[in-house]
Design a protein around this nucleic acid. Sequence first.
DNA 1: AATGAATGAGAATTCATTCAT
DNA 2: AATGAATGAATTCTCATTCAT
Lengths: 195, 195, 195, 195
Amino acid sequence: MGGTMDGTKQRRRGNTRQRIQDVALELFAEQGYEKTSLREIAERLEVTKAALYYHFKTKEEIIVSLFEDLTKPIEELIDWGRQQPHTLETKQEIVRRYSEALAGASPLFRFMQENQATVRELSIGETFKDRMLGMRDIIIDPDADLVDQVRCISALFTMHAGMFVMKDLEGDPEEKRKAILEVATDLITQAHKGA
Amino acid sequence: MGGTMDGTKQRRRGNTRQRIQDVALELFAEQGYEKTSLREIAERLEVTKAALYYHFKTKEEIIVSLFEDLTKPIEELIDWGRQQPHTLETKQEIVRRYSEALAGASPLFRFMQENQATVRELSIGETFKDRMLGMRDIIIDPDADLVDQVRCISALFTMHAGMFVMKDLEGDPEEKRKAILEVATDLITQAHKGA
Amino acid sequence: MGGTMDGTKQRRRGNTRQRIQDVALELFAEQGYEKTSLREIAERLEVTKAALYYHFKTKEEIIVSLFEDLTKPIEELIDWGRQQPHTLETKQEIVRRYSEALAGASPLFRFMQENQATVRELSIGETFKDRMLGMRDIIIDPDADLVDQVRCISALFTMHAGMFVMKDLEGDPEEKRKAILEVATDLITQAHKGA
Amino acid sequence: MGGTMDGTKQRRRGNTRQRIQDVALELFAEQGYEKTSLREIAERLEVTKAALYYHFKTKEEIIVSLFEDLTKPIEELIDWGRQQPHTLETKQEIVRRYSEALAGASPLFRFMQENQATVRELSIGETFKDRMLGMRDIIIDPDADLVDQVRCISALFTMHAGMFVMKDLEGDPEEKRKAILEVATDLITQAHKGA
DNA sequence: AATGAATGAGAATTCATTCAT
DNA sequence: AATGAATGAATTCTCATTCAT
């Protein structure tokens, strides 16, 4: 009592929810959603499984909360993008910002990328799909020819997957991101000109 | 066909192994590996779970067998590619053939794409990764600058993901494949010239 | 009503215990004792589970308290009955009063009636049984023949169950009660004459 | 090995399903449905919980199967009753047969009687209620006055509850049943004359 | 070539209860 | 008078796997 009171146990107060999210995301990204059990999450946090249920009604709610919390910048980006004229500059700006947004929530996106089959069955599945289609509609000109449409999709995909695939390539992460962004921007630009 | 009984059941004789693979791949691709239970597979085939174990020692062996059976053309392609000179023409040829090979086993690749987290933990994980690296080494010039390396990776990824992502886009599948191939070839070509 | 705040919440002050009993009885009668969780009761009252524990030491104590509060008239009736001579008039009087007492605590008796298996394991089980036997001993003449004993038991049971079974029969509740009472009185009377 | 092979374990073959039903009914009747866990049933049978699931898809299916198996005679009785003219003789005959049918499945009916709240929520709830209403419609004349309708309901209820309530009364069970039947028949007869 | 019966391990979830504040 | 956070024990149910026949 009194004194420094840094006690591990005391510290925990009030941030358990956050800690659950952190550990869960780490494990989900590492092993996948189904292979990660609530027992595992609880053990790592040194709480009981029931404690998880105090903070989240179901296992799914954990991933949903992560998705909602970490995905907000992208949602806003899409909303913003929709209201802009579909000029080349806008598209480039969107791609640039998207790249940044992805980098800011990269474990979540790694998870989404690597557990698509699972995500599809979850309630976030629809939301995620809608968002992807939202991006697509901003960037793709529906009258463009098929090849240019593919270029745009390829640009998006390059950004999604790039980071994880290149994990084993040597080099500074930020530099890699820039390189990925450059390729994506290139693709978008080519597609725009083609139209 | 003549005779008293064309019996669906009689017909099945001897090809159960194949039928298990077909159904399993279908379900794995649709719902994911972990969400697909052997009970489900067995029920769809109207056999017992134990019957599956006559043909495959474990659940994992089913997916491994699919991987091995359907992936042979790609293995051969890589082996062939390794022995060729790394000219632009070779690279383009490889990309062309790779696109075809993927199309020939598209449910499997959809599965691999959408269940990466799972696949990584499976014994095929390593093999798959090796193969991807094999492709990369044939196509990427290690002295090329980062952006060109990304182009190559992007080309591969575009082929992997393109088909599934474009499922909801209108248009003939073969035409789409051609468009995807064109974008991939473009990327490879640009990367080659850059070096 | 007048003033700035008639506040539902303010009103509640001091009668939480009562409110818990009300809601609990409602839910116990509706869904049964085990199927009703404290969470459910708490949610309906818009308090926390812990609040319930301020007023009752255990879940069982809630049902015990209901039993004790609502069952007092019957206890008194039995005590009174024991001291009367076992004449037909007394018996009829008891049956009449019993019918009234039951009507006054009908949700509790519905609960007791529909959750006998549960009640038996609870601490009220014995008390309840004792009380039933008390009623029986006042009404049944131990020397009467078996058929007349059954008549008496039937009379009691008719009153217990009648109300709930007849819920879906058309007609005014008070009239139904009167009809039930008449049948019960008849049975008692027949049994008395038989002896 | 070889020899008489009466081995407890060998015996079990092929009748596990039946044994599960037996033990389950015993425990359900004794402690109630919710208080009886599958663990308990499994332990008493010296099998694992999973074995229960081989034979029954859910806990509910166990009680449903018991209900369906043991309740058939009553179903047939009702069907027969519906086709008869509603004479006094028929009604008496039905009551007589009903009493026998109940005696033949008395643990199940004890369970139904003592776990009504639970049964109501189960899928058998509706079926059970329908059956009760079926009996009522055969026996009750809808034009009879309320008191006579109560007499009929009382007759049915006397038979349902009688056995269990009288468990602690001295006397031969078969004699008790006869006494109960006599009271029930009396009630029906009075009701019929009243109309 | 396949089945019927079973197991052991583990999953998600729920519950009554506790306690410091 | 009541809350927020947590626990421990239990529950139903599912799964991959085994094995004698």
